[in-house]
Design a protein around this nucleic acid. Structure first.
Length: 968
RNA sequence: CCGGAUGUGGUGAAAUUGGUAGACACGUCAGACUUAGGAUCUGAUGCCGUAAGGUAUGGGGGUUCGAGUCCCUCCAUCCGGACCA
């Protein structure tokens, strides 16, 4: 009876499928009612055509282990899986091949699911959701309508129905309490006389999902608009295509109203500090003041935003963004030409150029602002380092305290006022808040951080400004000019957006034959006459629409009356454990946190943070292999280079190449190697010394390499051009070079889990992925190492069964030593699993197996509990052995063993004995021994005496249960 | 430039509270069994040294009887954010 993992795994997978072992019940269906709930979620995968590689399932395995563990611990565990199946790649593929995204997506999902099932995950597939399924996006559209029909009441600090806003306008006009200030100003009476279009235009400024014209990140190559977080250094995150600013009609989410709550919410959730930091930085809250400065000779005021009102006496110039209309209004006649020239220059520069090169540029407008406190005239400049979109698009520059302002002042020779005395050295700006202010009028003598409040008060008293909080975060662009996404349930009539009635949902995505963009940057839907006729919105929703609320749908996936029954969401509540990559730090995680808050505000769910605890999984990097082709050579001293491109390829083993590189070309060994290479090239002895070779390194498929040894036959078959390859070997082997890189098809370093499952089994694969290292950490993949884990499972199997004798488990009473191994292991596995230290848990199993093998322990009372411990990690082998031991019930619901300290209690310990902190020997001492007793024993020890050399010890440190240190 | 993380054998790593550094594996070496081994098992394996011993957790410094762990400082790598006033 051997460990036939292929048969075992197949057998149990189909058994579990038949018996619906992974079906999860909501309490109203009777089962699970008496159990506490636990919700484990994996990040929503996009079903790409490339399928899974070994890096993908890392987090899935971790969450699967934890789910199974919690189930054994008596929880009703929800551990669902589904697919974020709308998205750009499928549409790009459709554009390229003409295949409908629905078709390719369906195929990809099937592949994905087969791969996942292969690994033995405990998903309840009956709860699967797909965002591109109309039964799902019906509710995405429904939530969109909730957003559309809501505004943020600043007084109540929550989302409310838009009818409430209308009521506020009717009662109080535009200055109603809780209503954000805007450009509109009207009395209740005026509101009632406004026509519908105007009213709706005003309301649009408050809806949480709203439509407006805005500068967007337009990517010509992708033919779409990208969110800020999809643009990296001025190019698209996907594909690296250039991105330009363009004004388009767009839908947005008013996430900025939630900035404060998104920030506060971070305090009550368990995300890593790094993750919280990233979100905090993205939200970018800053507080300061907006100040209006008079402009000499003009009616207009210059409004600036500053976080440092305490430095108001150090303002030496103003800088405004070139995009501001104010520029043209205040430029002086003398400076007009220079200003216009600069504006042209700015326009000519792409976002990318601006980000890439940071040269100092700018021009004086000829206008002066007046410092309201000392009447100083302050020159107003324009420069592209000030962004129109942040604050007021204008700053007061304080060169002694701000790095950029200082550089600007130096560059244009603007005199610098020092208001911080010795804190400013004349060379570099000092952004301190600790300095005592000088040259600062009424603020003189105050420490800067205290002056801040004084300054703001003075500004407010003078009526020239207000306290102001600003955020870096912008409202999120929520539309794409694309086909493969959720249609907006919106009809446009006379320029007014009307929501569809709930009864009309889902608004299904129509079939199209072409995925080409519509006219004027509109999406493909604009090409469909029937769609346009119905005056439906032609944009579609972005990828993050469906993924912002999917965790709720899993709770009640087949509900066609509601997005999720309130009873279900009250029961399952927040996701207890969310496992996924860091790449979603600011996108998905912020959006879904916002949606959750809105749904909470509107009373649809009972909690306002979706994910209680987040664990970030590290990336598994690829381990690439290289071969080294001799491409040419040069005789030293000669200019001529011999190109070998046309000859049959000669590959040199990495270690020989590496040795050769480090040698003096004149040395004997170098000559030996070079003549060997030349012999391979020409097929005969060539007498040349001092040869420099040109070696080209290129990737070789890791499947053709065992460890570092190349399969030469397979390599020759790999590509036609390698068929004639000749190798310079190290002994019999060709040794490949290696490097750790990102796992990708083009580097030929991807490894498919299917192959490993086929070769070693799912249980081995699961445990090996965990054994690799801590889940949060990135680490390179090494296929070789999997054999160690496989050996362990075989060894574990042999505790239960032998090839010839079959089952060898006995019902004998266990010895104290065996019980100690068992309980030590229970403690270890339970603690490690609880803290997601799966790698050390795997080694805990190995240690237990090694020790029980040494003890020749085949006792049921020891092995059965260990089998239960192993179930979350290697469910198939556990179930098989459980069954072999005669159990008819499922091990998936067995009772988790209980640790009992009495079995691991020790009476003595092998104490380390140090002299001056250096370990010299160990001594077995009773644990209850007291200090004087121990001191006596230690001093009598011959090793200790040898090191004491007759000197009396200065001090003896004895830490009970830990160590002894003798100080001489 | 800012922020975060990481740095331990040939490799992946462990050391949970300041207390025997390198558990557990991979790899390598030696051996056993075998027609055979890319199966299985046993042993060795941080480095220098025959040994005694010395030395060792990125470098330097500090606190301590004792530091991989705490503090200061420098360096390297990875990730994220980048003109946010």
């Amino acid at each position: 009876m051997e460990y036939d993992f292929r048969r075992i795994e197949k057998n149990w997978q189909s058994k579990w499928k038949e018996s619906k072992a992974y079906k999860v019940f909501n309490p109203e269906h009777g089962k699970g009612l008496n159990k506490p709930k636990y919700y484990v979620l994996d990040m929503f995968p996009y079903p790409s055509g490339a399928g899974l590689h070994v890096g993908h399932p890392l987090g899935y395995i971790a969450s699967d282990i934890f789910s199974r563990y919690k189930r054994l611990k008596g929880f009703n565990v929800l551990h669902p899986m589904g697919f974020d199946s709308f998205g750009l790649p499928a549409e790009q593929y459709a554009l390229d091949t003409g295949q409908h995204p629905a078709v390719t997506t369906k195929k990809n999902i099937e592949t994905f699911k087969a791969q996942l099932d292969n690994i033995g995950f405990c998903y309840d597939w009956e709860r699967e959701v797909q965002t591109s399924d109309p039964a799902y996006y019906k509710w995405t559209q429904w939530i969109f309508l909730q957003l559309f029909n809501s505004f943020y009441n600043r007084q109540a600090q929550k989302a409310e129905n838009i009818t409430q806003l209308i009521k506020l306008f009717e009662e109080h006009g535009s200055n109603a309490p809780g209503v954000a200030p805007s450009a509109f100003s009207f009395t209740p009476e005026e509101w009632k006389t406004l026509d519908e279009k105007t009213q709706q235009d005003i309301l649009m400024n408050y809806r949480l999902a709203f439509c407006g014209y805005g500068e967007v990140n337009w990517c010509e190559a992708l033919g779409t608009v990208l969110a800020n977080d999809e643009v990296v250094n001025g190019v698209s995150e996907r594909g690296g295509h250039p991105v330009v600013k363009k004004k388009l009609r767009q839908w947005y989410l008013r996430i900025t109203e939630y900035a404060d709550r998104l920030l506060e919410g971070l305090e009550k959730i368990e995300f890593s500090e790094a993750m919280k930091e990233m979100q905090t930085n993205w939200i970018g809250k800053s507080s300061g003041a907006e100040i209006d400065f008079d402009i000499k000779g003009h009616e207009q005021k210059l409004r600036v935003y500053t976080t440092r009102p305490d430095t108001i006496f150090g303002v030496d110039f103003m800088v405004i963004a070139p995009e501001l209309d104010l520029v043209n209004e205040i430029k002086s006649a003398v400076q007009t030409a220079a200003v216009d020239e600069y504006l042209d220059y700015v326009k000519s520069r792409s976002e990318r150029e601006r980000m890439a090169e940071k040269k100092i540029s700018g021009v004086f407008t000829g206008a002066y602002a007046i410092n309201p406190f000392d009447g100083r005239e302050i020159p107003i400049w324009i420069s592209e380092y000030v962004l129109a979109g942040y604050g007021t698009g204008a700053i007061m520059a304080v060169p002694c305290g701000d790095e950029r302002d200082h550089k600007f002042a130096r560059h244009f020779n603007i005199p610098i006022t020092n208001i911080i005395g010795s804190f400013y050295d004349g060379e570099e700006a000092n952004p301190t808040k600790e300095a005592v202010l000088e040259n600062s009028g009424f603020l003189n003598g105050l420490v800067m951080k205290d002056a801040m409040e004084v300054a703001i008060k003075a500004i407010e008293e003078k009526g020239i400004g207000t306290r102001k909080v600003n955020f870096k975060m912008r409202d999120a662009a929520f539309s794409r000019q694309r086909y493969w996404g959720e249609p907006f349930p919106i009809v446009w009539k006379n320029g007014i957006a009307y929501p569809l009635d709930e009864k009309e949902l889902p608004l299904e995505l129509p079939h199209v034959d072409s995925y080409k963009p519509g006219p004027d940057g509109e999406g493909p839907l604009a090409n469909i006459p029937e769609w346009v006729e119905r005056e439906l919105e032609t944009n579609t929703m972005p990828g993050y629409a469906g993924s912002s609320w999917y965790f709720l749908r899993y709770m009640d996936p087949h509900n066609d009356k509601e997005f999720c029954d309130r009873k279900a969401s009250d029961y399952w509540n927040q996701v207890d454990l969310y496992i996924g990559g860091t790449e979603h730090a600011v996108g998905h995680l912020l959006y879904s946190r916002m949606w959750t808050k809105v749904l909470y505000d509107l009373g649809h769910i009972g909690f306002d943070e979706p994910y209680k605890k987040l664990v970030n999984q590290g990336m598994i990097q690829g381990s690439s292999r290289f071969v080294y082709r001799v491409a040419g050579y040069q005789i030293s001293g000669s200019e001529a280079e011999v190109n070998l491109g046309s000859k049959k390829p000669v590959y040199i083993s990495y270690n020989i190449y590496n040795e050769f590189r480090g040698l003096d070309p004149k040395s004997d060994r170098a000559v030996e190697i070079s003549s060997l290479i030349l012999k391979h090239i020409y097929g005969k002895e060539v007498n040349e010394r001092d040869v420099i070779f040109k070696i080209i390194q290129h990737h070789v498929d890791v499947y053709l390499v065992d460890g570092f040894v190349l399969d030469k036959v397979a390599f020759k078959k790999w590509r036609e051009e390698y068929a004639e390859a000749d190798f310079i070997l190290d002994g019999d082997d060709y040794i490949c070079g290696a490097e750790v890189e990102k796992m990708s098809k083009s580097k030929y370093n991807t490894v498919n889990p299917d192959d490993l499952v086929m070769k070693y089994g799912a249980d081995t694969f699961r445990m090996y992925e965990m054994f690799l290292g801590p889940v949060e950490m990135s680490k390179p993949w090494d296929t070789k190492g999997i054999e160690g884990v496989h050996r362990f499972l075989k060894k574990f199997w042999r505790l239960f069964a032998e090839e010839t004798k079959g089952l060898i488990v006995t019902n004998d009473e266990p010895t104290a030593e065996e019980m100690k191994v068992l309980h030590k292991t229970i403690k270890k596995i339970e603690e490690d699993t609880e803290r997601f230290s799966f790698n050390t848990a795997v080694s805990g199993f190995m240690i237990a197996t090694n020790e029980l093998t040494d003890l020749k322990c085949h006792k049921r009372s020891v092995l059965e509990p260990i089998l239960i411990l192993l179930t979350p990690y290697a469910p198939h082998i556990a179930a098989e052995l459980w069954n072999l031991l005669g159990h008819s019930d499922s091990i998936l619901d067995a009772a988790y063993p209980k640790f009992e300290a009495k079995y691991v209690a020790e009476t003595s310990k092998e104490y380390p004995i140090s002299i001056n902190g250096k370990l010299r020997t160990t001594m077995n001492i009773a644990l209850d021994a007291a200090q004087p007793e121990v001191e006596k024993m230690v001093l009598e020890n011959e090793v200790v005496q040898k090191w004491l050399e007759g000197r009396p010890p200065k001090k003896i440190i004895f830490v009970k249960g830990k160590m002894v240190n003798v100080v001489v």
